[in-house]
Design a protein around this nucleic acid. Structure first.
Lengths: 174, 174
DNA sequence: CCGAACATGTAAGCAGTTACATGATTCC
DNA sequence: GGAATCATGTAACTGCTTACATGTTCGG
């Protein structure tokens, strides 16, 4: 139930509407925990039912501004410190690697080279993001730490894919 | 629909029953694309309906051995070469990092140090796996490449988490 | 003979995606 | 006046998890 906690985490920084939360998911959480509009509104309802958030104000166009409650803060802290992150990562990029022996060496190499390019591109786009956010951090230490993870991950992926593409030619067969 | 393709990929190596596939998921795909018993049997039914696999033999205890069909091989190759891997990774470990400003510095540092230990542990377990599989590879080039990904990932995670834990003390606040 | 391993299936429920549906306000 | 943006909600469907349910064969 991480969507729930992502929303609590965002609301811990200040009140927001469903619409606001959606924007925050798109700009800052897109690469970590994407969420759709329909999910956000539905979960806000459940959070309110559970008294982890409450409607703090209503605005024009039916806008409902939600604020986190004390129970919500407690739940967020509990999740942060007591619940083990789950380590099962599904990667359909890596899954394909397992089955690359079903195509010929040329296609396998192409696949890996393409992944190297994609990783390099992601890396560049994260570098761009870093420059945009550059000055703004008094509280943003943790945002920077998460961004650094992305930079290191995409570097690693690029290097690995290039190495792997090279390995293929060292093998006998098609 | 990657479960479907994971199953086709495994069946491309030779016929297997649902039970066999389940074992293969547990031993070789557990860290890349986990699957449960109930998923595997249900998907085998759908694959057979779509003529991507067929029952090739029946054995004792109701055992049904499935073999991939030509259509199945075509579908697998199509997925390998024409379908872009989806790049949205959900990480509940990284999601927590964004919200670590909701707890004090000590708890945040503890969290990151714990992640460093977990990563180191995973790394060790992959090294163990590498030794087990060591001699067996004529076909297993791609298994080794995937394993190398895991090794590089867990190294990166350990280094990052240690670096991040250090960063926290450089910040003002609680 | 008994326990472990082999073997298959169904059902309920939760999480996530895509598509549908509607309406109000602001800015130009 | 009209387009963009703000704003909320519902419905259908797919994929995954957990739990239930049952029966067979092999090895010691």
């Amino acid at each position: 139930m991480s969507l729930r906690h992502a929303m609590l985490g965002l609301l811990a920084r200040g009140p927001a509407s469903g619409y606001d939360l959606l924007k925050l998911f798109e700009i800052s959480l897109a690469n970590v925990w994407p969420a759709t509009q329909s999910q956000v509104y539905a979960e806000l309802g459940r959070l309110a039912d559970a008294d982890l958030v409450k409607v703090a104000a209503e605005g024009p166009r039916g806008r409902k501004e939600y604020a986190i409650t004390d129970d919500g803060v407690a739940e967020l802290r509990h999740w942060l410190t007591d619940v083990e992150p789950n380590r099962v990562g599904r990667s359909d990029m890596l899954l394909r690697v397992f089955f690359l022996d079903s195509v010929d060496h040329g296609q396998a190499r192409e696949y890996l080279e393409r992944q190297a390019v994609v990783a390099a591109r992601s890396h560049q786009s994260l570098l761009g993001l870093r420059d945009v956010v550059a000055g703004s951090d008094p509280l943003e230490t943790y945002g920077r730490i998460a961004l650094e993870y992305g930079l290191r991950l995409t570097s690693m992926q690029r290097e690995w894919a290039e190495w792997a593409a090279g390995e293929i030619d060292r093998q006998p067969g098609t």
